[in-house]
Design a protein around this nucleic acid. Structure first.
Lengths: 334, 334
DNA sequence: GTGAAAGCGCTAACAT
DNA sequence: ATGTTAGCGCTTTCAC
């Protein structure tokens, strides 16, 4: 009574294991037998064993999803975008959080391989990275969100460079000239690309670009707060701040507020990403909306495409364009 | 070269599969042989097949985690709390989002069973629910966050009733008497319990409790906004609002703001949960902090305990107490 | 259309 | 300590 297997069902119905397997997998079987099998299946509450099926099939219908941290409001959207698509094809996902630790990432990669996932979606924690493990992977992998230097793989990204460029130009169009850049970690492609966009816009407008204007190292509210703390003396030197991710912008604004500066009166600020809640903070944040849900969905669909295709296709790089969302954190500067 | 199995390793080393299996599983083996096997494993990049192992072992080291929606900022904390503990024991988790749809929940439950997960952590979408499927489950299940009527299982909760009671008393202590209650969905135990707490505090202080004072139906910013919209005419009848979850509080505040009401001057408001970002909104939200990360961690540890124990122990109900976080959304009312 | 049996990769019991 | 082998539950030829 405890464990009903296909074998029991076969015995009870007087049919062979093969036939029972066929009805389960909707392979043509005599109607009468099919009904009988279904009846017994229901009666005995038979649940097919996907592990055994996977072993036989050499495919699990599971995929691995590696991200830095589901607690960071940027990632749930990505994950959901992917999962909503995957579940339609009955794919289940193992969620893994690296906390931006390359060792953990390697560990997950190995384990996922050992678990025979059919594919992996990877939001990598570092761009300069030991490629040895990555190159060993034979199953389909699609990168998402961040690039890895020297690792030419299918990837879907938001338009970091161009988005930052547009955002910075927007600031300039509003009369700001001296723009502080508070960025993510320098080893992340996102941070570097956003930095490039900022710099390109600055140079295009013949605005001064000095090394001390850019500060890497924040992908959280706390880190943003901390960096801003160290820059309090410089506030008057700038018209605006380009925070290259929203959580950082929030931290920066909190720090400014705590130290008596008013946004946008004393200094304007823009973020990047448009995470869910920045419309509710005060002042609401002008930012660049990245369609991260879409990014997740596209990555998933690309992955399935690769899994289902026989021959390997040329590597794809898909960029999801975003858009500026104007809110209250920028003022005109005459 | 494509697929290295334990058998190949055995052949190459001249040892038996049994011996190879032993070195993989750290069972005593002659040092010399162990080294040889390891060497070959590395050379041929052998990765053990966990699927085969699972089939043989009848355990997968995977668990299923069912929640309403990872995009709702309440849930990532829970998930992380659980995962951080689980990964220490090498457990991987399948994440499933129900969107509060009982059919989806049933589907996940069935699939998870078929995937032979060793256990399930379930944040159920409905409390009045068809128990048939749930009762069929023979593997360890621990409920989290929300109760299911008539389903006596191991469960870990936050102290909804008592927390709401304390929160309401706090409002009363600040001089508020007419307190509107905007709540979650009535079919959720969390909403009902929080409602009970509110009512208990009100009655204890001989304050009027009328049916039109409580409005069920919001677990999102949008829903909170909508309910508040329909109540704009009543604002002046109340001193304060008890929103029984933070996202609802945010929606309510947005609506109030959009319609010219000032919080807390015109009306005070408190939330419930203390999700990450309510400290950054304006006014920052006074709320009741639930230790949801801890809740996840405790649920996971309880689950592992059950998985690892032979005989079944008495059902446990663990309540994680929270605490009031005073911020700016409540004023004194004389 | 159906039955028999090999095989997926591993573990564990048993024999040596 | 090591080798041999049955068996985990299913799919998939291959005869019939």
């Amino acid at each position: 009574m405890d464990k009903v297997t296909i074998k029991e069902i076969a015995k009870i119905t007087g049919l062979s294991v093969g036939t029972v397997s066929n009805v389960i997998n909707h392979v043509k079987v005599r109607k009468k037998n099919e009904d009988r099998v279904q009846e017994v299946i229901n009666k005995y509450n038979y649940i097919p064993n996907k592990i055994a099926k996977s072993l036989s099939n050499k495919r699990t219908n599971n995929i691995g999803f590696i991200i830095p941290d589901i607690k960071n409001p940027y990632f749930p959207e990505i994950v959901r975008g992917a999962q909503d698509l995957l579940i339609k094809s009955q794919y289940y996902v193992f969620l893994c959080n690296t906390d931006n630790d390359a060792d953990k990432e390697n560990g997950y990669l190995n384990d996922l391989l050992s678990m025979w996932v059919d594919g992996i979606i990877l939001d990598p924690c570092s761009s300069s990275r030991d490629l040895e493990i990555l190159n060993k992977i034979k199953i389909p992998v699609v990168l998402i969100d961040r690039e890895i230097e020297g690792f030419e793989k299918n990837i879907v990204l938001v338009d970091n460079e161009n988005g930052a460029y547009k955002m910075t130009k927007y600031l300039i169009s509003r009369g700001h000239k001296r723009i502080l850049n508070i960025n993510g970690f320098k080893n992340l492609s996102t941070a570097r690309d956003r930095n490039k966009g900022w710099e390109r816009a600055m140079r295009e407008h013949n605005l001064e670009v000095r090394e001390e204007m850019v500060h890497f190292g924040s992908t959280s509210v706390q880190q943003g707060y901390k960096i801003m703390s160290s820059l309090l003396g410089e506030v008057k030197k700038y018209d605006a701040i380009f925070a290259s991710n929203d959580v950082t912008a929030v931290g920066v604004m909190e720090c400014l507020k705590d130290n008596g500066f008013l946004v946008p009166n004393d200094i304007s600020i823009v973020g990047f990403d448009d995470i869910d809640y920045v419309k509710y903070i005060k002042p609401s944040l002008t930012t660049y909306k990245n369609f991260v849900y879409d990014m997740g969905e596209i990555a998933a669909s690309l992955l399935l495409e690769i899994i289902d295709s026989e021959e390997d296709k040329p590597v794809k790089k898909i960029v999801v364009e975003g858009e500026i969302i104007v809110r209250e954190s920028v003022r005109d500067r005459i």
